[in-house]
């Protein structure tokens, strides 16, 4: 299913519909259960902004499938970014770890889009300040390529080759009022 909307000087193309996103997340939940031996000791940490509702949705799906309650929280990596001085000051988001912390647990970082890998690198640094997980994994809804660091995701909702002139916009009901993933080409209003 793909639609096309025109705005500004560019175009936005829907690549995942709401239904697609639902299917993708269900598959990812199954993969997580499989790969972590039933979700034992797993904590899902969403990276703000859109990684946070994604982490909650994954936890809800795991609960629905297996009745297992995963730890859920959020982790703001802003203070650990290496590109702060190239952009305007970023407002800080909430960091909220589940009870019991992360020591000796399997932390799965959850984000909407994996691009350069710099956000994930910063998140790994931020994580180290809260403890020592047994393992850290990464789950992303979209992998759009163009990595600048040796980082890869353990769980990928959709691989989506893009050009650098394009932007990937993830919309989630909790924040944006509806679910969709769009590819916005150069010049479009986002």
């Amino acid at each position: 299913m793909s639609g096309r909307e025109t705005s500004g000087h560019g175009t936005a193309r829907t690549v995942l519909s709401g239904e697609d996103i639902g299917r993708v997340l269900t598959r990812m939940a199954h993969q997580i259960l499989e790969k972590t031996a039933g979700g034992n000791g797993v904590v899902l940490l969403g990276i703000p902004t859109r990684g946070v509702p994604l982490a909650r949705r994954l936890a809800a799906r795991v609960r629905a499938v297996e009745g297992v309650e995963l730890g859920v929280g959020s982790l703001d990596p802003t203070m650990h970014r290496d590109d702060l001085r190239f952009r305007a000051v970023r407002p800080l988001e909430v960091t909220d770890l589940p009870d019991g912390g992360i020591d000796a647990r399997t932390v799965i970082l959850v984000d909407d889009v994996l691009f350069s890998g710099r956000t994930v690198r910063a998140a790994l640094d931020a994580l180290a300040e809260f403890g020592r997980p047994r393992a850290v994994q990464l789950a992303v809804l979209v992998d759009r390529g163009h990595r600048e660091l040796p980082i890869r995701a353990d769980y990928v909702g959709k691989n989506m080759p893009t050009s650098r002139q394009e932007a990937v916009a993830v919309r989630l009901t909790e924040i944006d009022g509806s679910d969709a993933v769009l590819i916005v080409s150069e010049g479009a209003d986002r």
């Binding site: 407002p91 800080l92 300040e129 809260f130």
Partner: peptide, 20 residues
């Protein structure tokens, strides 16, 4: 004030330092 709320949580961590 909102940013300071975040900073206050740093004081409670075992590592009280950020690389920012």
């Amino acid at each position: 004030l909102d940013t300071a709320e975040y900073m206050a949580t740093v004081a409670d961590r075992s590592v009280k330092k950020l690389p920012t």
